[in-house]
Nucleic acid binder design. Sequence first.
DNA 1: GTTAAATGATTGAACGTTCATTCAGTCGAT
DNA 2: ATCGACTGAATGAACGTTCAATCATTTAAC
Lengths: 192, 192
Amino acid sequence: MDSLLDKRKCIIKSALDLVQEHGFHGCPVSMVAKNAGVASGTIYTYFENKDALIIGIYEYVVEEIKKYVSERDDNLSPFKDRFYTYWKSLTDFYELNPSIHGFYDQFLKSPFNSEDLQKKPNAWHDYANSFFEDGIKLGEIKELNPIVLSILVNTNVNSIVGIKKNFKKKLARNNMSLDEISHLIWDGIKAK
Amino acid sequence: MDSLLDKRKCIIKSALDLVQEHGFHGCPVSMVAKNAGVASGTIYTYFENKDALIIGIYEYVVEEIKKYVSERDDNLSPFKDRFYTYWKSLTDFYELNPSIHGFYDQFLKSPFNSEDLQKKPNAWHDYANSFFEDGIKLGEIKELNPIVLSILVNTNVNSIVGIKKNFKKKLARNNMSLDEISHLIWDGIKAK
DNA sequence: GTTAAATGATTGAACGTTCATTCAGTCGAT
DNA sequence: ATCGACTGAATGAACGTTCAATCATTTAAC
């Protein structure tokens, strides 16, 4: 029983790496299977088809993100601190898990991220939305739609992590550190 | 001669629509051909292979973006005005050309956007970078790396346009308008 | 405790489809 | 008459998916 869940997760994880590297269509089921150390037929014990595998990866990924970020949020702290912690947690998580970052970035803009999927309950999105709702209720940030806020902040974190990944050499100079972008965003969204 | 360029552009345009709708791998060459009103073999008169077609669309797209945004920039105006005009031009352009927005968003995160491609000269990226360099030289915006700034601003515009596309109904309420996000970003990046 | 049956995961060759690409022949302009 | 674009059927490789056979583990019977 346990090993079944393990194998499912094992397939997801090895598919995650490959998709991140080669794109959705650059990694055939056979490659995922080989990478996971199983036969290609086995994939179909755990997933209805390849699309379901991709969605399965997505569901795993958002669960992991939510877990990491929410564990580090202390809702008794001042909201400003919570915001910076949120930003840092998300950044850290992506940097610790570059293939999740790569996958998620690709997935969000892909046709896999269909309207139907977006309608389904999503613990990570719910968490992020209610996080920013808190900030608004507390009067700490501007009265923007929390959904917009969360998309905006998450997009920016994604972007920064991507920049760090790609431009590591060029940017290290004497410029304002990339981490300071969080201040820039905070200045933009804080109330007053 | 002219009709050859026309046909190339015609193929690019009809591929653009299809890719935006179905994703890179959801639109076979045969479909592109049919949509463009040519035989599939004809595609190969204009493009070496399907990948080259995708890259061709990308090159067309960034050229159009650059044209639209730079035409509306008056570098004699105060930089703050120029920033708002930049933001508005880019937003307008994407809203006037939703399939370009959809394509570009997908493309940027896809494996097609390879390191090699990123190294190639790109008039739009150069334009955006030097735009923000201007702002820094004029002392109007913070001393961030202009490459970072342009990625950041472009990402945010992209994101806002995407939100407008998807959430038209939900968001129209009484919340601060999405267009105000530009102020939020300006407040964040302006000097002082 | 041993043996036998049952269950269900696993395998990988085989299948059928899809699709990028080719090319021999056609058409149209000059 | 020549040249080059155009056509679209043909090709063959790639890939998702299936399934008969195998294997491992659990259950049942004695």
